[in-house]
């Protein structure tokens, strides 16, 4: 969980992303290793969620250092994942014999998976603009 040196709300975002890398990654790896056949789609989607959190962590770190383009893409991708998987888990429950990280919009994790990309986008668009270099 090494952070950029500049302080700000992104420190909290980075911490929560790191926790979710651990939570989603460990969960999906254990499920895939021990009972993949029970709910392959759900377990693969949990692994995708973990990969998204890894990318999100790097994206916020880069944005905090002055390169917001990657975060502008990744946070929307993450939000789309939560909305699509969350909706599918409600309208097509048969597709998900076991829950994914994003099932029911992240209800199993206190809806933090749905709140996190929104909080990230708010931070991204409200953070102070980088000062232009004077040449």
């Amino acid at each position: 969980m090494k952070h950029t040196t500049s302080t700000g709300p992104h420190l909290v975002l980075l911490t929560v992303y790191a926790i979710f890398v651990l939570a989603a990654g460990a969960r999906s790896l254990v499920q895939i290793a021990t009972r993949f056949g029970d709910a392959p789609l759900a377990y693969v989607l949990s692994l995708v969620a973990a990969a998204t959190y890894v990318a999100g962590w790097f994206a916020i770190r880069r944005a905090a250092a002055g390169s917001p383009a990657f975060a502008g893409v990744m946070l929307w991708v993450e939000l789309a994942g939560v909305v699509v998987v969350g909706t599918l888990s409600l309208v097509e429950p048969d597709w998900f014999p076991d829950a994914t990280v994003w099932s029911d919009y992240g209800r199993g994790y206190g809806w933090v998976p749905a709140i996190l990309p929104v909080a990230g986008l708010i931070w991204l668009y409200r953070r102070p603009a980088e000062p232009r270099s004077q040449t």
């Binding site: 969980m1 952070h3 302080t7 709300p9 420190l11 909290v12 980075l14």
Partner: peptide, 14 residues
């Protein structure tokens, strides 16, 4: 460890 050198208000959020 990640906020060792940062004592700003947001480090309490971590």
């Amino acid at each position: 460890t990640s906020i060792r050198e940062d004592r700003g208000p947001w480090s309490s959020g971590v």
